[in-house]
Simulated scan of single mutants.
Amino acid sequence: MKPVISKPRHAIMVMILVLTLFSFGKAAAQDKNQVVRIAKLQIDPAQLENYKAALKEHAETAVRVEPGVITLYAVAEKNNPTHITVFEIYANAEAYQAHLQTAHFKKYKSTTKDMVKSLELVDVEPIALETKMKQ
């Protein structure tokens, strides 16, 4: 019998944290200076594929070129794919502020401004971000 999850957002949050476990180092996870947040977005259904492409390009670039960007995970709800959740970890507040000033972030924001119907940013405090590194 499958468990019933009454809150889809809770399921997404759990999934994001599980993903984090697979790629985020234990020592880094314990850094109290990190900025950890969740972005909850609703995307215009007619623009969903374009939005996903822009987000993927942005996240890949940010993780590749910004040393202060530790993690950017983006997921869509299976039953409501226009609901996107992004789990973000930055080395510190300065890294987060620097991220907001990069050309690739500004490109992402300008490209997607008419695609995003709503955005909620939630600052969170990590409790346990443990991982097993790939061998």
Rank of each mutant, 00 (worst) to 15 (best):
I16V: 08
S6T: 00
R37K: 14
A103N: 08
K2W: 01
R64H: 10
T112H: 04
S6D: 09
V18S: 14
V36N: 06
L121M: 08
V36K: 01
S110G: 02
T102V: 02
A53L: 02
M115K: 03
E49T: 10
L129N: 12
A59Q: 06
K78Y: 08
K106Y: 00
P45V: 03
A98W: 03
E94M: 02
S23N: 14
I43W: 02
D44C: 06
I84L: 02
V18Q: 15
D123S: 14
K32Y: 03
H104F: 07
I5K: 14
Q101G: 06
T20R: 08
A74C: 10
L100D: 06
I89N: 03
L17Q: 03
P8Q: 03
A74E: 07
E88S: 12
F87T: 01
V35S: 02
H10R: 08
V122W: 01
Q101R: 10
T112R: 09
T85Y: 15
N50L: 05
I16M: 15
D44N: 13
M13Q: 14
T82S: 06
M13Y: 13
A93V: 11
V14S: 14
Y51K: 02
D31A: 11
V69F: 04
K109R: 14
A29T: 08
A28W: 07
V116F: 01
T111L: 10
N50H: 03
T82D: 06
K132S: 06
Q135F: 12
P8C: 01
I16H: 11
I84Q: 00
V14P: 07
K134S: 02
V63I: 13
E57D: 14
V86A: 11
I5W: 15
I89F: 05
A59P: 12
E57R: 05
L19K: 13
K26H: 10
G68D: 09
Q34N: 11
P81L: 05
E66M: 01
S23Q: 05
A74N: 12
K117P: 04
V122G: 00
A95C: 09
T82E: 07
Q34G: 15
E125M: 14
K109D: 11
P8I: 01
V65M: 04
K52N: 15
E66L: 00
E60W: 01
A74R: 08
L100G: 12
E57W: 01
V116D: 03
A59C: 08
E49I: 00
V14I: 11
K2M: 11
D44E: 13
K78R: 14
Q135C: 06
Q42G: 03
R9K: 02
K106N: 15
A62C: 08
K40N: 07
R37C: 15
P3E: 05
I5A: 15
A128S: 11
T131Y: 09
V122F: 04
L72M: 09
I89H: 01
I127G: 02
A128P: 01
A103R: 09
H83M: 02
V63P: 12
A93F: 04
K132Q: 06
V69S: 13
L19C: 05
A98P: 13
D123Q: 11
K78S: 09
R64D: 09
A53S: 10
